[in-house]
C-alpha cells in the first residue's frame, strides 16, 4: 500500500515536473502571439527590435528612455548582426530591424516575396575608429596606408615610420556590418571595381571587446571598431582620405562636417510604413530628444547638434 502510494507520488512528481517544463514553453508561445494580435487595441504595446551589434547599446538606450516616457510600451532589443535583423524582419519575427548597412537587393527581393515592403529610416551616424596600442608611436595614417596594411602589402610598422615590429591585423568577423563597411570604404578605398581582400592572416575576432582587449595589450596590433565602442585603453589614429587631405581624429564634429573619412549611416527598417505606437517610437528617435542619446553613446547624431 505504502509502496504504491510512494510510487504514484513519484509518478506525480515526474508528471508535475514535465508540466513545469512544458507549460511555460507553451505559455510563452501563447503569450507572445496574444500580444501580437491584441497589441492594436490593448493598453500595453510591445515592440521587438533585432539587428546590428554595433547598434545594440544605442537601441537599448533608446528603448529604456522611451519606456520611461511611455510606460505602456514594452521594447525588447536583441543583437545578432545587421543580416540577422533584416532576416527577422523578413520572417516577420521583429517589428524593427537595426542595420549598420543599407539593405541588400537580395534581401529586398526576399522581403517582397514575403509580402513585406521594408522602409528605411536613417537614425544615427557612426564613425569607424582605427586603433593601435598606446605604446605605438604612430599617430596618423592615410586611407591608402591602412588599406595596404590590411591587404598585406605592409607587414612591419617600420615601413610606415614606426618601430621594428610585425603588424598584427585585427578585424571583426565577416558577418559584421562593420567588417563589410571597412572592406568597401577602407580596403577598396570606396572603388566599386576594386577587388582587394583582407590579408588571409587577418585575425577575425567575434566581438568588439575581443578587439579592444587585444589592442590594449599587444603593441603589434592594429584594429578598427565603431567609435562608440572605443575605450581609453587604446589609441585613436588620425585618418586622411588621401595625401592632399588633412589628418582628422574621429569625433562628432569631424563626422558631421564630413572631414573624417570613415563614417556611415545607421538604419532602422520596418515592414511597411509604421503606424500607431511604432510610428511614434521612430518619430521620437528622430527627434532632438532621441538624438541626444545618440551623442551620449559616442555615436553621431543626424541632426546638427
Amino acid at each position: 500500500m505504502f509502496v504504491t502510494i510512494i510510487t504514484t507520488m513519484r509518478n506525480f512528481k515526474v508528471i508535475i515536473s514535465i508540466c513545469l517544463i512544458i507549460f511555460p514553453l507553451l505559455g510563452c508561445g501563447f503569450e507572445s502571439s496574444d500580444n501580437r494580435s491584441q497589441s492594436t487595441e490593448s493598453e500595453t504595446y510591445s515592440i521587438d527590435n533585432v539587428g546590428s551589434d554595433t547598434m545594440v547599446n544605442l537601441a537599448l538606450a533608446w528603448a529604456e528612455e522611451y519606456q520611461n516616457l511611455q510606460p505602456n510600451i514594452r521594447i525588447s532589443v536583441t543583437g545578432g548582426g545587421s543580416g540577422t535583423g533584416i532576416t527577422s524582419l523578413i520572417n516577420k519575427s521583429t517589428d524593427i530591424a537595426n542595420a549598420s548597412r543599407v539593405i541588400k537587393s537580395e534581401e529586398i527581393e526576399a522581403a517582397k516575396a514575403q509580402g513585406i515592403d521594408p522602409i528605411q529610416f536613417n537614425v544615427a551616424r557612426d564613425a569607424i575608429a582605427v586603433i593601435v596600442n598606446p605604446n605605438n608611436p604612430i599617430d596618423q595614417l592615410t586611407l591608402e596606408q591602412i588599406s595596404d596594411i590590411y591587404s598585406g602589402k605592409i607587414n612591419n610598422w617600420k615601413e610606415i615610420g614606426g618601430e621594428d615590429r610585425p603588424i598584427v591585423r585585427l578585424s571583426r568577423e565577416t558577418n559584421s556590418g562593420t567588417h563589410v563597411y571597412f572592406l568597401e570604404t577602407v580596403l577598396r578605398l570606396g572603388q566599386v571595381d576594386n577587388k582587394t581582400l583582407f590579408s588571409p592572416d587577418t585575425l577575425l575576432l567575434p566581438s568588439s571587446e575581443g578587439i579592444i582587449a587585444e589592442v590594449s595589450d599587444n603593441p603589434n596590433t592594429i584594429g578598427y571598431d565603431g567609435l562608440g565602442y572605443v575605450t581609453p585603453e587604446v589609441k585613436l589614429i588620425a585618418v586622411a582620405k588621401d595625401n592632399k587631405s588633412t589628418f582628422e581624429y574621429p569625433s562628432i564634429e569631424t563626422v558631421n562636417n564630413n572631414t573624417y573619412p570613415i563614417a556611415r549611416d545607421l538604419y532602422m527598417y520596418t515592414a511597411g510604413q509604421p503606424v500607431g505606437a511604432l510610428k511614434d517610437y521612430i518619430d521620437w528617435i528622430l527627434s532632438a530628444e532621441g538624438q541626444v542619446i545618440v551623442a551620449n553613446l559616442g555615436f553621431v547624431p543626424i541632426l546638427p547638434p
Binding site: 526576399a110 558577418n175 567575434p206
Partner: peptide, 9 residues
C-alpha cells in the same frame, strides 16, 4: 558558429 547567424537561408 561565427557565420551561421548572418547567412541567408
Amino acid at each position: 558558429a561565427a557565420e551561421m547567424g548572418e547567412v541567408a537561408t
